[in-house]
Simulated assay, not measured.
Amino acid sequence: MQGPWEERDGVLRYRTRGGVEIYRLPMRLFPELDGYVYLILTDSHRILVDAGSGLPESWEDLQRGLEIVRARYGCRVDLPSLTAIVITHGHIDHFGGLTFVRQQSPAPVFAHELDRRVLVNYPERLITVAQELRHFLSQAGVSPERQAALLNLYLSMKTMFQSTSVEGLLGDGELLFGILRVHHTPGHCPGQVCIQVDEVLLTSDHILAHTTPHQAPERITRYTGLGHYLESLRRVAAIPGIALAFGGHEDPILDPYGRIAAIEAFHHQRLERVLEICQEPRTIVEISRALFGRQYGYGVLLALLEAGAHVEYLYDRGYLQVANLDQLEKEPEVPIRYRRL
């Protein structure tokens, strides 16, 4: 993809109007997921934005990316010389690499307070979310055997991380180090932040170039959910002067405001589709199948959560009702069926 940047050996460099250099370092996060971390350089700062997943391939890619910055761009930077590490949100493909990075870097870690607990008490996070997820799957209409399999999938790639300290908190509107403007954008994750550097916005997983970032119901984790996400999209759309956006995955975004409008329109179309599906009483399992067809592996869980987020949005706003209320009163564990009002 061509744009107002240069790229050498896969590492992209962009220099902002204020003279800040932003480097995009590619990495394999999981076997079927690629993404990026970012290095922000000024005369006095060496800031790493996100740290990868913690898988060996991710760690090797980070080291390789830093070597390219040194060898091909002539910048003397390595992990020990970092002045700060900024975590954009509490999903393991963005913070899991801290386990490795902190072995070589004494730099302080910054995160939003709503994701602080994920980093500093990770085992608690896994247990509490697994409990909420199990309850959601039960009410969605997933069989007990399938619930166990999906929970195992959820936990399978998340046990490598060890809790770590967070030295600084990212506040909405804060100008960190005089160069990074923090925008709190909950929805995809409670503590999701976008980082503005002059005319550039690092959107992490809040805005992506091609896919619509994954949503999950707020009933599982507070400050997630489609309502928060759409509100955050509108807040970013109101930020003036953003000429270019870089996400945590996929291509750069040359028209950030147009991309925001497209994502918002997509979700409203999906909401209308859910209402069509719910002309007759439907469980979330049935809604998920109607929306996404047959899924496999981790895709099953992602589809259920995405469907659940849209159902929750419509139910909370009075567009859906529980169709089997009498049955639920007698059998609290029975799957909930939703019908359009």
Results as ranks from 00 to 15, higher is better:
residue 9 D to I: 00
residue 12 L to Q: 05
residue 14 Y to N: 00
residue 18 G to T: 07
residue 18 G to F: 05
residue 25 L to D: 02
residue 34 D to M: 12
residue 34 D to R: 11
residue 43 D to A: 15
residue 48 L to V: 08
residue 50 D to I: 01
residue 61 D to A: 15
residue 64 R to E: 12
residue 73 Y to Q: 03
residue 75 C to I: 14
residue 81 S to Y: 06
residue 83 T to A: 06
residue 85 I to S: 07
residue 86 V to F: 10
residue 90 G to S: 08
residue 91 H to W: 08
residue 93 D to W: 04
residue 97 G to I: 07
residue 108 P to K: 03
residue 108 P to D: 10
residue 124 E to F: 12
residue 125 R to V: 12
residue 125 R to D: 09
residue 126 L to D: 09
residue 130 A to T: 15
residue 142 V to N: 04
residue 160 M to S: 11
residue 163 S to V: 07
residue 165 S to N: 10
residue 169 L to G: 01
residue 174 E to C: 09
residue 180 L to N: 02
residue 184 H to N: 08
residue 191 G to I: 10
residue 193 V to N: 05
residue 194 C to N: 08
residue 199 E to F: 08
residue 210 H to D: 13
residue 219 R to E: 14
residue 223 Y to M: 14
residue 234 R to Y: 03
residue 240 P to Y: 05
residue 264 E to S: 12
residue 268 H to V: 02
residue 277 I to V: 15
residue 280 E to I: 05
residue 283 T to G: 12
residue 288 S to A: 15
residue 291 L to V: 12
residue 299 G to F: 10
residue 302 L to Y: 06
residue 309 A to L: 08
residue 310 H to R: 13
residue 312 E to T: 11
residue 317 R to M: 12
residue 323 A to S: 14
residue 323 A to T: 05
residue 325 L to N: 04
residue 333 E to N: 12
residue 339 R to D: 02
residue 340 R to Y: 03
